[in-house]
């Protein structure tokens, strides 16, 4: 089984990774579209807490958020996810996102936290503006990232 902290390659292009921050953790989503980069960034948030592969997609939650630019939209999206994880005591590992004019609609699949099976390491308090960027690389690939406070 791969390490929960190693990048999980879902397709040839879309994947997530963590990058170091002294006290906390950086989350990064990469994909062929902005939407897929946002989806992968969300998987990276789950991976801060537990191994996303151990999270079963048995319940569905819908999200919607809006922000003046892509970067604030990424932080809003991840904070909306963190809020639902905290109040529903759930983990999510599969996401489908649509973005139109800085308006985001998301569907997330997950399940209630199971301490024994998920071994959750740490709560995520919030997504921050540190190392925040949403960019399209010269090769067309989208990268969405920020540091989350744990």
């Amino acid at each position: 089984m791969p390490s929960p902290l190693a990048p999980q390659v879902e397709t040839a292009q879309a994947h997530w990774e963590h990058f170091p921050h002294q006290a906390d953790m950086g989350v990064r989503g990469l994909g062929p579209t902005k939407e897929s980069a946002f989806e992968q960034a969300a998987v990276a948030v789950t991976a801060v807490i537990a191994n996303p592969e151990a999270v079963r997609p048995v319940e569905v939650v819908s999200f919607s958020c809006e922000a003046p630019d892509d970067e604030l939209l990424l932080v809003d999206w991840l904070n909306a996810l963190i809020f639902e994880m905290a109040t529903r005591k759930m983990l999510f590992a599969r996401f489908a996102i649509q973005i139109h004019d800085h308006h985001l609609e998301a569907t997330a699949w997950g399940e209630p936290v199971d301490v024994v099976r998920h071994q959750p390491a740490v709560e995520v308090k919030g997504a921050t503006y540190t190392a925040l960027s949403v960019t399209q690389e010269p090769d067309g690939r989208w990268v969405a990232q920020c540091v989350v406070d744990v």
Partner: peptide, 17 residues
């Protein structure tokens, strides 16, 4: 706990804007 985290998140955005 969660209350402080949420207040921090919301006001960070509001003050940044």
């Amino acid at each position: 706990r969660g209350l402080g985290h949420q207040i921090g998140t919301e006001f960070l955005k509001r003050m940044a804007v």
